[in-house]
């Protein structure tokens, strides 16, 4: 079961993960990651912008790559756009497989690519103004681990 989405409103990751698990009968394991806006002092909101002609298509290509690379039964990949408050989910990736390694690695792979190789731009609102956020060197290094 494959479910790749962009959402412009708050969502409940646990409900998505529950129905994703139910949609993959016979699975051996599910690995899920949920990213949330950190409740840092001084950060009042995060805004994710995207580019309609590329962003969802790019996530579909990332899902294709995950299915090619790992032994998966299903993949759920949901990413928020718009303004998001502290504590709200930004991203949810869940992978179902017969064996744990495929599921765990697929989630890790998808998250590393969503962080620094998907068509999103992120800025945070602090008390003074909005500030754009670039990926950290660690984000690029994490993604490079998957280069063959």
């Amino acid at each position: 079961m494959r479910d790749i989405r962009l959402l412009d409103a708050p969502f409940d990751p646990s409900a998505l993960i529950r129905s994703f698990g139910a949609a993959n009968p016979g699975l051996g394991g599910v690995c899920s990651f949920v990213g949330e806006v950190r409740g840092e002092q001084d950060v009042t909101a995060l805004e994710l912008s995207h580019y309609e002609p590329l962003t969802l298509a790019g996530m579909e290509q990332l899902a294709d790559a995950a299915f090619d690379r790992f032994d998966l039964m299903g993949l759920l990949m949901v990413h928020r756009i718009g303004v998001i408050g502290p504590g709200e989910p930004i991203v949810c990736v869940s992978a179902a497989a017969l064996h744990r390694r495929g599921a765990i690695d697929a989630v890790d792979f998808c998250m590393d690519h969503l962080k620094s190789a998907a068509w999103f731009w992120k800025r945070e609102q602090r008390s003074d103004a909005w500030h754009w956020i670039e990926p950290r060197a660690d984000d690029y290094a994490d993604r490079s681990r998957w280069e063959k």
Binding site: G35, L48, Y51, P53, L54, H79, I90, V91, M111, L114, K115, S116, A117, A118, W119, F120, W121, K122, I133, E134, P135, D139
Partner: peptide
């Protein structure tokens, strides 16, 4: 045509 200028990305 639409030409999009795409700076370094940051998602997740």
């Amino acid at each position: 045509d639409e030409v999009a200028l795409l700076p370094p990305v940051s998602g997740g």
